[in-house]
């Protein structure tokens, strides 16, 4: 690292950016997750759910927390990058003596913080209503940080690639949303036919949701320890990809 203070400054800038508009970036996503929780709980409340080892309300909460974390981590880095490109302020980062690794690290770390704050706000609102056992708090943190890092790096790559806000919306609506909704947030994969269960196991977001749920509730559909290594590898791979793209100036420099 050649400019750690510059990297820290960029991280703080990115955190301050979303804190400046906290109604939009923290409160609204937390409220959306709460609405999902209430609507799904009451809409599905009457159905028997023999496969679930805990009540549906409790089952939903950690998955929704992880979904909120993933979507907001992605939104943080992607929106910051595309806004910077559209407004022309990204040139100040290109001009600054920051290495590509420092830029990516700062963006990804800020995305992780945004994801943690949103998911934390959602879980905090549930404190009077649900008791979570938190049998593996460090595992919960690991999944949360890995999820935030994967989505932060992915958002940065999407932001670097995009030319317009529409391009980022394309990735959000056709990649991030379907993969997070089909990650076992609202149901247990044990209740699915074998083919769908296999497809879910191939979705990395499923392992993030399932692993986080295991760390919070102690119940899981897949092996939560097995999921960590490939997720860490995915985070590393995406970090390196974002780093190489920034270093090459792809879609950033003429």
């Amino acid at each position: 690292m050649t400019n750690p203070y510059g990297c820290w400054t960029l991280f703080v800038r990115e955190v301050r950016r979303f804190l400046n508009v906290k109604v939009q970036t923290i409160i609204a996503p937390a409220l959306t997750a709460l609405l999902y929780l209430v609507v799904f709980h009451y809409a599905m409340g009457a159905r028997p759910r023999a496969q679930l080892p805990v009540d549906y309300f409790t089952f939903l909460a950690p998955g929704l927390a992880m979904m909120t974390l993933l979507q907001n981590a992605f939104a943080n880095s992607s929106s910051s990058m595309i806004t910077g490109k559209v407004m022309g302020v990204h040139v100040y980062l290109l001009m600054a003596p920051l290495s590509a690794a420092e830029v990516v690290l700062a963006f990804v770390a800020a995305a992780v913080v945004r994801g943690l704050v949103c998911a934390g706000a959602f879980l905090l609102a549930l404190v009077p209503f649900v008791h979570f056992a938190w049998p593996h708090p460090w595992l919960a943190l690991s999944y949360a940080v890995l999820g935030g890092a994967i989505m932060g790096a992915l958002g940065l790559i999407a932001g670097i690639w995009a030319r317009r806000f529409d391009d980022v919306a394309l990735v959000t609506n056709f990649v991030v949303m379907p993969l997070t909704f089909l990650a076992g947030v609202f149901y247990s994969v044990q209740s699915l036919p074998p083919l769908w269960r296999s497809l879910h196991l191939a979705n990395p977001f499923f392992h993030l949701v399932d692993g986080f749920r295991f760390a919070v509730l102690g119940v899981a559909d897949a092996d939560p320890w097995w999921g960590l290594a490939p997720l860490a590898a995915a985070a590393l791979l995406l970090f390196v990809l974002a780093w190489r793209l920034w270093a090459a100036g792809w879609k950033l420099k003429a």
């Binding site: 203070y5 510059g6 400054t9 800038r13 302020v89 100040y92 003596p97």
Partner: peptide
């Protein structure tokens, strides 16, 4: 072009920091 989230004083502090 300026980041619409910040004041001139913020801009100068941030720029200084980015340069280490």
């Amino acid at each position: 072009a300026f980041d619409p989230f910040f004041t001139p004083r913020d801009v100068l502090r941030i720029t200084s920091g980015l340069y280490g």
